[in-house]
């Protein structure tokens, strides 16, 4: 059975409605609806392996703020984003923290590290 999946292109304000057509074997037959190369690439990537950066916060003890912003050093599979955020919510860091400081290595086996987005002084 031929399967068609829809995506909304994020490449520019045009917001093309993209269609990816797949054959019985799961191979992409055609991408439609794009108006440039970027759109076609985006549709293929979103279809096969959608990934996102994770940006969230970690509780921090004794800092000038109660939360430390953190982010992954690489995009992670989209369906792991919630799980990673929940895991990071269970952690507590202690101030002072330096910008770029490693908070978690290879978070949940994704190969991406989690680092501090900013430095945070102790209160």
């Amino acid at each position: 059975m031929i399967e068609i999946t829809h995506y909304l292109c994020i490449g520019c304000p045009l917001g093309c409605r993209l269609e990816v057509e797949e054959d019985e074997m799961g191979a992409v037959v055609e991408v439609r609806g794009h108006s440039c190369r970027k759109g076609k690439d985006f549709a293929e990537r979103e279809h096969h392996d959608p990934r996102r950066m994770v940006t969230t916060t970690v509780a921090v003890h004794n800092g000038v703020w109660a939360r430390l912003p953190v982010h992954t050093t690489a995009e992670v599979p989209k369906d792991m984003v919630r799980e990673i955020v929940r895991y990071l919510r269970s952690l507590e860091a202690a101030a002072p923290v330096e910008r770029g400081q490693l908070m978690v290595a290879d978070v949940l086996g994704t190969g991406a590290d989690v680092v501090a987005s900013r430095g945070l002084d102790a209160e």
Binding site: M53, T55, T56, P69, H71, R99, S117, R118
Partner: peptide, 25 residues
């Protein structure tokens, strides 16, 4: 910027994608 912890900042000015706190830093 300090409260805008998401990424997407800096592509034009710094030529790379940063979070808000990183752009401020």
């Amino acid at each position: 910027l300090n409260q805008c912890i998401h990424n997407g900042f800096g592509l034009h000015h710094f030529g790379e994608e940063l979070t808000g706190p990183e752009y401020a830093s």
